[in-house]
Design a protein around this nucleic acid. Sequence first.
DNA 1: AACAAATCGGACCTCTGTGTCCAGAATATT
DNA 2: AATATTCTGGACACAGAGGTCCGATTTGTT
Lengths: 144, 144
Amino acid sequence: MISQTTEYALRAIVYLAMHSDTAFTTLQIAKATRVPPAYLAKVMRALGKANLVNSQRGFGGGFELTRKPSEITFLDVLNAVEPCRRIRKCPLGLESHGVNLCALHKRLDDAAAVIEETFAGVTIADILAKPTKSIPLIETTGVN
Amino acid sequence: MISQTTEYALRAIVYLAMHSDTAFTTLQIAKATRVPPAYLAKVMRALGKANLVNSQRGFGGGFELTRKPSEITFLDVLNAVEPCRRIRKCPLGLESHGVNLCALHKRLDDAAAVIEETFAGVTIADILAKPTKSIPLIETTGVN
DNA sequence: AACAAATCGGACCTCTGTGTCCAGAATATT
DNA sequence: AATATTCTGGACACAGAGGTCCGATTTGTT
């Protein structure tokens, strides 16, 4: 359902959110999130263009979030890398249907709508706050 | 969200449901549903393997549903052509996470789960019954 | 038996998502 | 000023989805 690229983008954003106010290089993020470094570089550029992260070149540079984790939603990240394609008009091109979707396409679009709405309501801060057995991106040793 | 192939498959199934107890050739279905004929042939084979349609070769042959529209769900069709990939274990391969998804992946899997559950609850009969302004696959002239 | 109508199966093509790589531009340190 | 570090932008490679095509096989009609 969700593309690989979107998942990578979310991992990176979550990682940055876990270590606020510090810049991280592509390589650092890639290592921590286990995303192919060269590909993550491309994803980070997309996140930059969407203004979700600031980038700083040169020595000591890297990426950091442009706003607080509580102000970044899943949908923001999704839209940055893979625009959510809703069904706006009849895919068959039937003139008489036009914008009035038939039951079939209405149902399909409803599914997309649910995802969109759900993701719009979930922030990165929610992910950090949620107490689960596993901590995002972190490998816990038996010591815990 | 939903693949092109799945949409094609649904169109074909809905079309057959609208004309029960008659066999239709790939070409007939393709024309009515506006799906590329050669590709629909491949999709129909998949639907046949999933036992959603019966196929009859030779003169007068074609496809028809194996069961009543009320007994075929969206999920049946989805699974026939594009198995729904849920997140079963940590995509990073973190040992400590394993089957206990972290908040991030839990959310992503939840989205997939919602689609899966929703589609499991919608039958082809529902699509036919639903009175909307537009009738699935049918171009209505101004006469209506 | 011969023929025509259909599906079946697989080979092949194209395009997009995923992924790699490298030269160039910006920036901090020395 | 020289150098090392890091992002930027684009070219290239690979795999899978979407799509085409054709010979082989089954089946009904004549």
